[in-house]
Design a protein around this nucleic acid. Structure first.
Lengths: 161, 161
DNA sequence: TTGTGTGCAAAGACTTTGCAGGCCG
DNA sequence: CGGCCTGCAAAGTCTTTGCACACAA
């Protein structure tokens, strides 16, 4: 069932499977919903804001409203199809729950997001009696490229002193 | 320098140390700033929203404005005195960076927050070249008490069927 | 046909900002 | 006394909601 895409990306589901899941749970298969799902599955980056998703969906389905996007992202989150991530106070990010569970390395300089399969819940000694259901884990810093640029910049600045 | 409080809590700094740190960095020691710092050090729970902090500060310093609280929480964050945490899309939480580095277990039922000293950055295999500077790690679930209540509730419901 | 879903507009929650005057150092 | 800080009010950003109509089943 898993589909092999370019660059070794594994896609566990296709759009029809998700639509079927929604249908079975009593949701209607509107064209807006299909467009949103389509966009989520085609995202080139792992994370996208509602704004970003909206802009893409508009191309497929002109006239769609922002609140429709929000409402459906909510539905997809309830159904376990999408994960919502909030860092800083800006807009929330969304990503399809598809393939392996993972977390993110986010570059504070260029914004690049890398996925890592390591999950801290594996190693963490759980406090007695606490039953975890969800967790957030995101690492911010500088990616290889930006770190190198930064070092060169520091070097240059040092020379000027 | 560390001060031992009740229940084994270790406080690494006192208010004067923080004020001194601010002074040295060129900040003025206004009564608003002192009140905010005082409130942060006296919080009974590990995390507090700006709203919560504001309400406490008003008791000490009536007439203080909400934007002053926000502006100073920003300053304290810049200075590494306070950490800002955002989960869900609601208000951000703040906590004093004092004592050991830690993360949180948050009960989705009663809202209780427990601190855990485990930090995932210790065990995580870092992607080559990435230099981490910050990270978020919060675990949501049910605390012992709420889990038990939940189980009893499920049991009761089962009986009614 | 029925009621879930949508578009529209408005409100809501949280946070930030511009400006005139106040207070710390 | 100078400039950082504050209070106030307004605006900004992101998200949610109420309502009438539309469309999937």
């Amino acid at each position: 069932m898993a589909v092999k895409l370019g660059k070794g990306v594994l896609r566990m589901h296709n759009k029809n499977e998700f639509m079927e899941q929604l249908r079975q749970r009593g949701y209607k298969l509107t064209k807006q919903r299909q467009a949103i799902l389509g966009v989520l599955m085609d995202l080139e980056k792992p994370l996208a804001t509602a704004q970003h998703i909206f802009e893409k969906v508009v191309e497929i389905n002109p006239g769609i409203n922002f609140s429709t996007v929000y409402r459906n992202l909510d539905v997809l989150e309830q159904e376990g199809i999408v994960r919502k991530i909030a860092f800083d106070q800006g807009a929330a990010y969304y990503e399809l729950i598809d393939g392996k569970h993972h977390h993110h390395l986010i570059c504070k300089s260029c914004g690049k997001v890398q996925c890592v399969e390591y999950c801290p819940l594996r190693d963490m000694p759980m406090k007695e009696g606490f039953v975890p259901t969800d967790h957030s884990f995101e690492v911010f810093g500088f990616c290889k490229e930006c770190m190198q640029a930064k070092l060169m910049d520091d070097e240059r600045r040092k020379g000027k002193e």
